[in-house]
Amino acid sequence: MALSAEESGRLAALLGGHAERVTQRWTEIVAGSLRGRLSQAELRRQVQDLHSAIVATGEHGAIDLSAESAAELRAALSDLSRGRARQGFSATETAISVFALKDVLAGLVEEAGGDNALRDYIAFSRLIDEMGLFTFESFVRTRESLIADQAEQLLELSTPVVKLWEGVVAVPLVGTLDSARAQVVMERLLQTLVDTGSPYAIIDITGVPAVDTQVAQHILKTVVAARLMGADCIISGIRPQIAQTIVALGIEFGDIATKASLADALRHVLRLNGVETARRQPRRDV
């Protein structure tokens, strides 16, 4: 798929010889496709970077996008796609920025004429196709890692450990408790227990739609780990349908205290500590 040394030389000469015109025209075409969502100056700089990378690589000899000698060109393409992916452009919009060079080259090759014109144009096009695909792929990779990052942030956000009372922390679990989430929850809870020196932790599962053996196992492991650190866990938010399902599954929470609601769990802890709560106090009219 690589260009021969002669073809590369001719491409470099063609692009290098008309540097101003090429970057000008190239920028115009791309600007049209992006409809003003990127500043002209920024776009121009990107196009110039690509342009000089192609010229520099071509002057060095045969352009082979996968070879060591094309490292600079690949870096320029990756920079372009990373930037575009972060700025929220689509993969197509990004690839067009590369494919636009074909239009520019068509004019130049025609103008230059010569016996090789058609063959050269076909060879150049093939290189640009390859560059476009490379851009597309690195765009997708960047998007994927962006999505993974966001998922991780969401994970952190969605598992807050709150201090409910002096000596009592709570983790309200919401949604699916998969292994990755469970790991985060466990670490967060244990860290908070250390930071606050709390002897009690309440794990509230009101927001968990189904408690299967995996969820149960994660909870049990967390409770055991908390115990090793000297803290007692209470599981709260066990709704009737979850309770019946847990029983049918055969899951046993052993001697772990379980409560229907977070309020019940807190009341339970306070009572253990000799704090009288409102519910148990006799009403007195003033």
């Binding site: 189904a210 408690v211 299967d212 053996t213 995996q214 009737p240 349908q241 019946q244 399902t245 049918a248």
Partner: peptide
């Protein structure tokens, strides 16, 4: 029923 939904969803999960 809500209980049966939860049961069958949990079985499916397993």
């Amino acid at each position: 029923s809500l209980v049966d939904q939860t049961k069958v969803v949990t079985a499916a999960s397993e």
